[in-house]
Design a protein around this nucleic acid. Structure first.
Lengths: 206, 206
DNA sequence: ACAGTAACTGAACAAGCGTTCCTTTCAAGC
DNA sequence: GCTTGAAAGGAACGCTTGTTCAGTTACTGT
């Protein structure tokens, strides 16, 4: 039997990507076989090759779609004027967006080594674009004497790793609401980079 | 030909673990075959089973040895009295220790899912012990009105993720020395948790 | 009603997997 | 110098892997 009623490319295609995303996140790219993905979709392994040229491209497509969405969401966000507020908005955005896509984020950090150099380079460029957006906030705050940061690049990385940490431990049914976690984190990030009030007064006086 | 001159269990054993550690970190546990490890060691695949009952146990042994070393080093470290200083010492220790063992750390965060539930539980207990050491510093600082932390558990996780971030981007031949990175990070961590001076004065006055 | 084609099956391919086992080699102890 | 046993070789085991492909089915447009 082939071609079940109501099954189309429009349906199976997304199902393949969803199944692959979930399985890759759960077991790792190398540990998941095409037959496992096919079983999850309800199809034979050979049929998957109607939707991807090979396993590695399937991984790349998942990751690049994720990064594309991330950058689009970032650009669509309206930013306040004040760097201090910008940083808070960014922190909250980062946590919220990534929490809703845990699987994709997980894979993004674990399976980059399974990509060809060219595919890796493409994703890496997108990642850097995202990080640069944060760094620009830090630079602006630095200029406005609001932030006191030793090294904007290093601080950018530090903030992102800290925010990403939420993904590894947060459980929706846990002790804290996501709203509260967002608040605590954006507060901590703010304190970590903000200039001491005494120092700012001194600078402004000059 | 078997048993080359000067090759013994004392030599091959460590070589197996070193090769496995490096390859697992580079390609992932599932993607590395016993034959690859054997080739790296300069031995046939079957010989590996003189040093490990199976592949999964090899992984667990690497990870538990790493955690054992980490906890031992933590206990051996002499801690200053003041929580603010303790936090700085901890941050610096964490960066330094983990930077020297990037491969093991990498695997520790990526390959836990490849362990049996029992083996996972053992490592998880050791990890929690390490995290608790940091949390105790935060609690002590909180009591002494030195720190102003919303939630010690959450903050513990946030600090550790932030520190771990160093491993993903730091390059020894890069722009910054490890000493300087340690300094900046421990400073940022301090600022993120320390109580504002004005607030502390108010509390002490009461 | 019929042709065309998109969607899928199911079998096959060579290659590689973890692991076992018997054999061979060599160093140390007597 | 001979025996013993540790250390390793090398072949073999049954299975799984990613991928291909000829054949089959069910839907669509006419």
């Amino acid at each position: 039997m082939a071609r079940k009623t109501g099954s189309h490319s429009d349906i199976t295609g997304p199902k393949v990507r969803e199944a692959a995303l979930r399985l890759f996140a759960e077991h790792g790219f190398a540990a998941v076989s095409m037959r496992q993905i096919a079983k999850e979709v309800g199809v034979q392994a050979g049929a998957l090759y109607l939707y991807t040229p090979d396993k590695q491209t399937l991984l790349f497509d998942l990751l690049s779609a994720h990064m594309r969405d991330l950058l689009a969401a970032l650009r669509a966000m309206e930013m306040p004027e004040h760097p201090v507020r910008q940083l808070e908005v960014f922190a909250r955005f980062h946590i919220r967006f990534h929490m809703a896509r845990r699987d994709a984020v997980f894979i993004s950090y674990m399976e980059l080594r399974n990509l060809t150099p060219e595919n890796f380079a493409k994703l890496d460029a997108m990642r850097r674009e995202y990080e640069t957006a944060l760094e620009q906030i830090l630079i602006a705050g630095q200029k406005a004497h609001e932030f006191d940061v030793d090294d904007t690049k290093l601080t950018t990385m530090a903030i992102i790793s800290m925010l990403n940490g939420v993904l590894t431990w947060y459980r929706p049914d846990g002790r804290l609401s996501l709203e509260r976690v967002e608040a605590i984190y954006s507060d901590m990030v703010g304190k970590a980079v903000r200039m001491a009030r005494s120092k700012r007064k001194k600078l402004v006086a000059e």
